[in-house]
Amino acid sequence: MIVRWYVLEGLAAIILGLIIALLVSESRVLSHLLSDKLTVEQALKCEFSARRLAEITFNPQNFASLTLKIESQGSNRSYVCSEYSPSLLIIDLVSNKTLILLVPCKE
């Protein structure tokens, strides 16, 4: 069977197109962008939960227990729970102590 030139040309075009499509869709840039987008979304969630925690922590009704927490510790204390951890900085100028709380991010 004699293969016509235009059949070969068509096959070559299809293969070339598939290679281009594969390169574009599976490129590192795209996968990086997609994964990065997810990370940013998680980080945003962490920020919002940290802000909520800050609002609760700095309610005057909680100040007395906050002071006890600060004064009862000798050095800075922190909690590490995930790669992206927003922190809360608590400074007591009267007792001259600082507390850094790394806020846990809920997945």
């Binding site: 800050a54 700095f58 005057p60 906050l66 809360l88 900085l89 007591d92």
Partner: peptide, 10 residues
């Protein structure tokens, strides 16, 4: 929010 809270506290 954190800074505002710390200022209020102090």
């Amino acid at each position: 929010t954190n800074l505002k809270g710390v200022i209020y506290y102090n």
